[in-house]
C-alpha cells in the first residue's frame, strides 16, 4: 500500500476552476465577435488577432523573464483582455497602436501588480483609456459599419459615433429633436450597425453573451442591474426635465459601449466588489458617473472612465459593505 495522504477537510472539490470561468467569458464574447466581424470585415479580424496575440505574448514574456514563474497564459485571462481590448478600439486602428494598448493592458495594468487577481483596475479598460488619451484622433474616428460582402472598403469611410453627434450638436446649440434625424434608429442600435468600437456594434449580441454568463453563474445580477438601472433612472429624470436638452434613456442604453461595459467589464470579478451590497453600490456609482460624463463631460462616452473610477473605490466598498453575518440583525 502506498503512503496515505493527510490534509484538512474538505476532501472533495467542486468542478469550478479559474480556467472554466475565463473560457466561459470567452465563449460569451463569441456572438459579439461574430457580429463585429460581420460589420467591420477584415479590419475587425486584424484588430482582434493582433490584440489577442500581443496580450498573450506580453503575459508569457513577463511571466517567463521578469517574474520567472509558471506560465499563466493558459488560464485564459490574457485572452479575455485581448478580445476586450479589441472590442474597445475602432477597426481601422494601426497595428503599432494596438500593440501599445496590449502592452499597457497586460504589462502595466496587470502584471506589474502581480498578475491575475491582483490588479486593481480592469486591464483592457486601462489599455483603452491610455490609447484614448494618447491618440484621441485615431481612437475616435470610426469606420462606418457596413455589412460584410456589401463593401470591402469600409476603412475609407469614417464618421462620428451617435454619442459624438449628440454631444457636438447639443454643444453648438441644436435641440435633440433636430439631431434625431442624423441618428441611427434604436432598432439599428439593438441589432447592430452603429458606428463605434468593434464590440459596441450590437447590443443584442452582447446581451446573448451576458445571458450565457448569468446562466453559467460567471457573473451575478447585481452589477448589471444596478448599473443599467441607475443609467435609466438618471437619464430618464433628465429627459423628463427637458426632452429637448437631454436625449432619451433608450438612446443611452443602445448606443456606445454601455452594454459592453456593463456586462463584460464592470462585472470583471477581480476589479469589482465582493459582497452583494457592494456590487449594487458599485453598479450604481458607475451608472451615475457614466451619465455625468456623457451629458456634461468633455468626452462623448463615459463608460470606461466610470468603471475605472469605481474600480478605484472597490477596496473601500469591500471594507464598508460586509455580507450579512448569520445570527446578526441588520
Amino acid at each position: 500500500m502506498n503512503l496515505l495522504t493527510i490534509s484538512g477537510s474538505p476532501h472533495v472539490h467542486g468542478d469550478s476552476s479559474v480556467k472554466k470561468i475565463m473560457y466561459g467569458v470567452v465563449i460569451a464574447m463569441i456572438p459579439a465577435l461574430i457580429v463585429s466581424i460581420y460589420f467591420f470585415g477584415i479590419g475587425a479580424v486584424k484588430v482582434i488577432l493582433i490584440s489577442v496575440i500581443a496580450c498573450l505574448f506580453f503575459e508569457w514574456a513577463i511571466q517567463k523573464f521578469l517574474i520567472k514563474g509558471k506560465s499563466t497564459i493558459g488560464d485564459g485571462s490574457a485572452l479575455i483582455t485581448g478580445v476586450l481590448l479589441a472590442f474597445n478600439v475602432p477597426s481601422n486602428l494601426p497595428i503599432g497602436i494596438i500593440i501599445i494598448g496590449a502592452f499597457v493592458s497586460i504589462a502595466i495594468a496587470k502584471m506589474s501588480f502581480g498578475g491575475l487577481g491582483k490588479n486593481p483596475f480592469n486591464p483592457a479598460l486601462v489599455g483603452r483609456v491610455f490609447l484614448l488619451v494618447s491618440f484621441p484622433v485615431l481612437m475616435t474616428s470610426w469606420p462606418i459599419p457596413k455589412p460584410l460582402f456589401s463593401s470591402f472598403v469600409t476603412d475609407a469611410i469614417t464618421g462620428p459615433t451617435p454619442l459624438g453627434i449628440v454631444k457636438e450638436g447639443l454643444k453648438s446649440g441644436e435641440t435633440v429633436s433636430h439631431l434625431m434625424a442624423q441618428l441611427p434608429t434604436y432598432t439599428e442600435g439593438i441589432i447592430g450597425g452603429i458606428g463605434g468600437s468593434l464590440g459596441e456594434v450590437s447590443v443584442i449580441a452582447l446581451l446573448i453573451g451576458a445571458i450565457y454568463m448569468l446562466i453559467k453563474k460567471i457573473i451575478t445580477w447585481e452589477i448589471p442591474t444596478a448599473f443599467l438601472g441607475s443609467v435609466i433612472i438618471f437619464t430618464g429624470v433628465l429627459y423628463l426635465i427637458n426632452p429637448e436638452m437631454y436625449i432619451s434613456p433608450i438612446f443611452h442604453l443602445v448606443t456606445g459601449g454601455l452594454a459592453l461595459g456593463v456586462f463584460f467589464m464592470a462585472t470583471d470579478m477581480v476589479t469589482s466588489p465582493m459582497s452583494s451590497k457592494g456590487m449594487l453600490i458599485f453598479g450604481l456609482g458607475a451608472g451615475v458617473i457614466t451619465v455625468i460624463i456623457r451629458v456634461w463631460g468633455a468626452y462623448p462616452e463615459g463608460v470606461s472612465f466610470a468603471i475605472l473610477i469605481m474600480n478605484a473605490f472597490v477596496p473601500l466598498i469591500n471594507k464598508g459593505f460586509k455580507p450579512k453575518r448569520f445570527g446578526t440583525v441588520n
Binding site: L3, L4, T5, I6, S7, G8
Partner: peptide, 19 residues
Amino acid sequence: PKKVNYDGPETCSFAHSLS
C-alpha cells in the same frame, strides 16, 4: 522516514493541528 504524505499549506501550526 515518512509514514504519511502531508498535503496542505506550508505552515507548521496547521500541520500540527492536523496530526
